[in-house]
Design a binder for these strands. Structure first.
Lengths: 192, 192, 192, 192
DNA sequence: AATGAATGAGAGTTCATTCAT
DNA sequence: TATGAATGAACTCTCATTCAT
């Protein structure tokens, strides 16, 4: 039962990699076609435009993140457990995202207005999940925070930022990084 | 005695704004020229290439950041005081950086190899200042951290990320954000 | 069964004419495209660069010259007969070269180093054929020359130079010019 | 008593070298200015346009050639002596022409119509001197030629062509080349 | 679906030329 | 005379997109 993977999916997969390498504006559809094993013009049998590829990628990625995160959080009894899982998930997703995964704040500006709105909406939905955990921590556990939105942003930037420097061959693996970040977020720097 | 500002400086200033708006690859030299009040070709009287503008901008910014940070840290007696100032400075610099200021991790890939190395070197020098504060906190004050390098990265990403969502007309001003972030970093979320 | 001629060949053909008219640096790719019946950008579907067109042209021409010359010399029993055919061939080729034919000493400087070497190599190979005829004349017929290389150059320059002034409507046709040049080369000016 | 050399003459001198190196269309006035030790704009205090520099150079060169040739021919009693001197002069002039000397058949096309006519006129005047020698040889010495114009062209191309391959460090010096070429022209290849 | 030739707008860059100083 | 900033047209080249096959 071989996994059949459609040409469309191959293109998305390669587009994700190419956009990560060069960024959307600098990425070249002929190069994308080459990597996908077809000719330049053939891309247009699968997508209406370069913009659509970017949008599909980001849209899929945001939906995927939301769905997976929700899966990961299932069965986490306490806000602390949820936070721990969130940090791990977010770092992992950005560092070793599955194929067809692509999301960068910096590329948001390359989305056409309507697409922009859709993606930002989904991003905000994700962000609200993060905020929800923080809020629940405050309510149920007396966590020490005033502005969940603000801290949610800090958390997300911090974790997503790992992707800019992480190297598989480095000293720390993802679990270790996630543990350290969780500890920082929970306990802070000052001794107790 | 009015401050004279050279055309070269005007170009750098407008380039910084344009690159922030569109990103380097999508920014257009004719548009830059228009904003600087000259014709497209005239840019080449002041710079050898688009790449050189990017490099000058990043190089100047990194040097400026290093210098200003060091100024800000002067007279800060304790690691805690230093950390507080650092967080404030970093957020402020990324949000309301002076003219000719431009730095983005995402644009590093657009630097040609030699330029890339120079900028990354300076970035690392800045990063080491941050690490230094954390290390001193650990040594002198028993701060609770194992890997200063790792935490320095988290800190910097978190603070720099403010620039992606901050709006001057928003509820929080920079000082408030900096205070909240410092608190998070110092005390963590969990109640003491 | 009409000879099909590819767009690529049309471009080469028109490029040869255009370069002859204006010289390589002054020739303009949009003008070339216009003559080839396409848009400027379409040239790059067939060639990687202007330089490549020049190289293809010169390379093809040199190969063609070598091959045709060898065809012409076949069956020429004596060095004298060979010389006669060579002079005729060389003048004819430079004056009414077939399509896609383009060669000028003066444009060699416009070739990038690697291309330059290739073309000069082929040119030298042609030159050696000429030298070979002269050497054989000396050996077998006691021709009056000391330095075949030097005389080969004189011969070739003299014949190629016809192209700079020849006009089809002029008094002399190519056969007549070739006959006169051969006579000069064989007998010299002084009366016997 | 130092030789004063005007800036204008320096420019012409450097222009001659630059045009020889790159050809007129590819030569760059800023580069020329640099070599002449001034700024780009300053050239226009001495010449109205790039074209004028080319014209002045060619015009001066043609006049100079005619004048010097006539000087060299003075006192040459026989056509043979004249021919000998001519060949030597022509090769020498093209190979090691004095400063401000520049002439190439290939650049004629870069002259504007009026300039073109003037230069071609002078070139023809020079050519007629060569023809004159040949004609006189035929009349007085029974030289073996039918069309002096045709042979004059052959001669001139052959000699001018030396400049395309001559190297000062080569085996033959100019006198030797001139002697060989004269011998070829006088006696031809076939044994007497 | 796929090809590959073609489009056409626009990019970065070059450069002869002008001109206020 | 000389400067150097500026012009503006033109250049080579790129690329998302189209379309007949």
């Amino acid at each position: 039962m071989p996994e059949t993977i459609s040409r469309r999916e191959i293109i998305l997969q390669e587009a994700a990699r190419l956009f990560r390498e060069k960024g959307y504006p600098a990425a070249n559809l002929r190069e994308l076609a080459r990597r996908a094993g077809i000719q330049g013009g053939s891309i247009y049998h699968h997508f209406a435009s370069k913009q659509e590829i970017l949008f599909q990628l980001m849209d899929h990625t945001m939906s995927d993140m939301i769905e997976r995160l929700s899966g990961r959080l299932e069965g986490a009894a306490t806000p602390l457990e949820q936070l721990t899982r969130l940090v791990y998930f977010h770092i992992e997703y950005f560092v070793t995202g599955p194929d067809q995964t692509y999301i960068t704040d910096d590329e948001l500006r390359n989305l056409e207005p309507q697409n922009y709105r859709e993606i930002v909406d989904k991003r905000d939905r994700y962000q609200r999940v993060v905020e929800g955990i923080l809020t629940e921590g405050r309510t149920r556990e007396g966590w020490n925070l005033e502005d969940p939105k603000l801290y949610a942003r800090a958390l997300v930037k911090m974790c997503a930022g790992v992707a800019t420097w992480y190297k598989p061959e480095g000293e720390l693996n993802i679990a270790q990084i996630a543990a350290a970040y969780t500890k920082l977020l929970c306990n802070g720097l000052l001794p107790r």
